[in-house]
Design a protein around this nucleic acid. Structure first.
Length: 277
DNA sequence: AAACAGGCCTAAA
DNA sequence: TTTAGGCCTGTT
């Protein structure tokens, strides 16, 4: 019912700054789900929220536990995307992608969740990725209540490190199961310190992540971009490879995009996926 | 039925 | 350093 939502929400930002449908559906995250009214509900770092659009405003209803600043950070609202976008307008194709993807935010997700999620994503499709992660949370996460409903947190690395690949059989994630438990052991033991990596530079993060079994160049770049919040990361999958080949010059180098690379990648990816045949 | 899906690992040149 | 084949599973 609409009235419930109307009274409890507070304004997060404008719809021009944050397009929730594009942001949640552009493939960077897997745990936000819309109801029939278009209200998205998700759990971030143990905190639940519902987000929706009302006229020109984006509204949010979250528990007391997480202040508004927490969600502003998650949606990267302190970063000026307009100035980032100016860096790519000189190329006609990139400009088209940027126009099409206007309102997309690169979410500042939890590093461990991003790590697991993109391990699961390899050679997989989005509905199945979402299902595997949902089962993962339902089985091994903690329960929290939000808006009268029971939700699940993403299981932390310590919890998962105590599991065997066989324990993950209900996920039906196949050969990825040992990758997940192995990564959990690396993170919970401190061998892989994601907080440290977030401040230690792109190249260092890439090297450290790739040392983990099951993490190659593509997954590592996704973790760096979505989980460690380094905008120079530029994940290239089969969609990106094709889009680049068909639309950009042979000498295209994402490094030239600098701090805009990650956002630019998201625009290209979203445009390619949205206009597939 | 057989191929493919938002890769990665290993073995082999 | 690059390339082929295999891999869990679900869908087409």
């Amino acid at each position: 019912m609409k009235r419930d939502i109307g009274c409890k929400g507070i304004r997060l930002t404008s719809r021009r700054v944050l397009d929730i449908v594009k942001t949640f559906e552009c493939g960077q995250c897997f745990r936000w789900n819309a109801d029939e009214r278009g209200v998205y509900t998700g759990v971030v770092k143990g905190c639940a929220a519902s987000v929706w659009t009302e006229g020109d405003d984006v509204m949010i209803s979250a528990s007391e536990k997480a202040r508004l600043g927490f969600w502003r950070d998650y949606f990267d609202l302190d970063c000026d995307y307009e100035s980032l976008r100016r860096n790519i307008t000189q190329n006609e194709y990139l400009n088209l992608c940027a126009e099409y993807g206007g309102g997309i935010r690169i979410l500042r997700q939890d590093g461990w969740e991003a790590l697991c999620s993109f391990i699961v994503s390899q050679c997989n499709n989005i509905p199945r990725i979402k299902k595997i992660i949902e089962t993962f949370c339902n089985l091994f996460g903690d329960t929290i209540e939000h808006d009268g409903k029971l939700l699940y947190t993403f299981p932390d690395a310590r919890r998962v490190s105590a599991l065997s690949p066989d324990d993950l059989a209900p996920l039906r994630c196949g050969y990825r199961a040992p990758y997940i438990t192995g990564a959990a052991k690396a993170v919970s033991s401190g061998e892989l310190d994601l907080d440290l990596l977030a401040h230690g530079g792109y190249e260092n993060a890439l090297r450290s992540l790739r040392a983990i079994s099951g993490i190659g160049d593509k997954v590592a770049n996704c973790v760096i971009l979505y989980g460690l919040h380094m905008m120079e990361a530029f994940p290239v999958d089969v969609w990106m490879r094709r889009a680049i080949k068909e639309n950009l010059s042979e000498g295209f180098d994402p490094k030239a995009l600098g701090e805009c690379a990650g956002l630019c990648q998201q625009y290209i990816f979203y445009y390619a996926r949205s206009n597939r045949s």
